[in-house]
Measured scan of single mutants.
Amino acid sequence: RPRTRITDDQLRVLRQYFDINNSPSEEQIKEMADKSGLPQKVIKHWFRNTLFKERQ
């Protein structure tokens, strides 16, 4: 599967949610997917990777 490119607008949506809650529920992930147009799987990976980077 090719790598998903996240646009600036999509990144802005993800960052807004991450700043509020870095561990979103399934419902919140679905909401983000609707707003950003990204697949839920991509959003889950983005949150996991971003949380890991923040903790380092």
Score class of each variant (00 low, 15 high):
R15L: 05
V42G: 05
M32E: 00
D8S: 13
W46H: 00
E54C: 07
P2F: 04
E54L: 08
Q16N: 07
P24T: 01
Y17H: 08
W46T: 02
L51D: 05
R1V: 02
D34R: 09
Q16T: 12
G37A: 06
R3D: 15
H45L: 11
K44E: 08
N22Y: 09
P2W: 01
R5T: 15
E31D: 13
Q40P: 15
T50E: 11
T4S: 06
P2I: 15
P39G: 12
K30G: 06
R55T: 06
K44L: 11
N22T: 14
K35E: 07
G37M: 03
E31T: 12
F52K: 15
K44V: 09
K30I: 08
I20K: 09
F52T: 15
L38D: 00
Y17M: 14
N49W: 12
I29K: 01
I6E: 03
N49E: 15
F52R: 15
I29Y: 06
K41L: 12
I20Q: 11
D19F: 07
L51C: 09
T4V: 08
L51E: 08
K41D: 10
V13E: 12
Y17I: 07
K35H: 02
Q56D: 00
L38I: 08
K41R: 08
L11N: 11
F18E: 02
T50N: 11
I29D: 00
K44C: 05
Q56N: 08
S23P: 06
F47I: 04
L14D: 00
P39D: 12
D8G: 10
E27N: 08
S36E: 08
I6C: 03
W46C: 02
A33H: 15
P2Q: 15
T4K: 07
G37Q: 05
R3E: 15
I43H: 00
I43D: 00
W46E: 03
R15S: 10
L11P: 00
P24F: 01
I20A: 12
R55G: 10
I29L: 14
N49M: 09
D8L: 11
K53M: 14
K41M: 12
D8V: 10
I20V: 09
Q28S: 06
P24R: 01
I6N: 03
R48A: 11
R48C: 02
K53P: 06
T50P: 04
R1E: 00
R5A: 10
G37F: 02
N22K: 09
K30Q: 04
L38M: 04
D8I: 08
P2V: 13
S36P: 00
T7M: 07
R12S: 13
L38C: 08
T7A: 11
K30W: 02
H45S: 13
S36L: 13
K44T: 05
H45Y: 11
D34Q: 08
F18W: 13
K53V: 07
A33C: 07
Q16F: 06
K53L: 07
T7F: 02
K44P: 01
I6M: 15
T50L: 07
W46L: 02
R55Q: 10
T4G: 05
S23Q: 12
R5E: 15
L38Q: 01
Q16R: 12
D9N: 06
L11M: 11
R12M: 14
T7W: 01
Q28I: 11
V42W: 08
T4Y: 12
D19T: 11
N49D: 12
F18I: 07
S23H: 14
D19R: 11
F18P: 03
R55K: 07
M32F: 03
N49S: 10
R5K: 14
F52A: 14
K53H: 10
K30L: 05
P39R: 07
T7D: 12
Q16S: 15
P24A: 01
W46P: 01
A33I: 01
S36W: 06
K30H: 07
E26T: 10
G37R: 10
L11F: 05
M32V: 07
N22S: 12
R3Y: 09
S36G: 02
L14V: 02
V13G: 03
G37W: 02
I29E: 04
E27S: 13
I43G: 00
A33M: 09
V42T: 11
K35R: 07
E27Q: 13
A33K: 03
K41Y: 03
R55H: 13
D19G: 08
W46D: 03
I20L: 11
F47G: 01
S25V: 03
R1G: 05
D19Y: 13
N49K: 14
G37H: 03
P24M: 02
Q56F: 01
N22P: 11
S36N: 13
I20P: 13
I6W: 02
D8N: 05
S25F: 01
I6G: 02
Y17E: 07
L38V: 12
F47K: 01
S25D: 05
K53G: 09
Q28K: 04
L51Q: 13
T50M: 10
Q10G: 01
S36Q: 07
R48T: 10
K41F: 04
E31L: 05
I43Y: 00
K30R: 06
E54I: 15
W46N: 02
P2C: 01
R12I: 13
K30M: 08
F47H: 01
I43T: 02
H45M: 13
R48Y: 03
I20F: 11
I43V: 12
T50I: 05
D9M: 09
R1A: 01
E31Y: 02
R15D: 04
K41T: 14
I43E: 01
I6H: 05
R15G: 05
V42P: 01
A33L: 02
E54D: 13
E31I: 05
I29H: 04
L51N: 12
D34T: 14
F47M: 05
Y17A: 07
I20C: 14
E31F: 03
V13P: 01
E26V: 09
D34L: 08
E26A: 11
Q10S: 03
S25G: 13
V13N: 05
L14Y: 00
T50H: 10
N22L: 09
K30T: 10
Y17R: 03
Q10P: 01
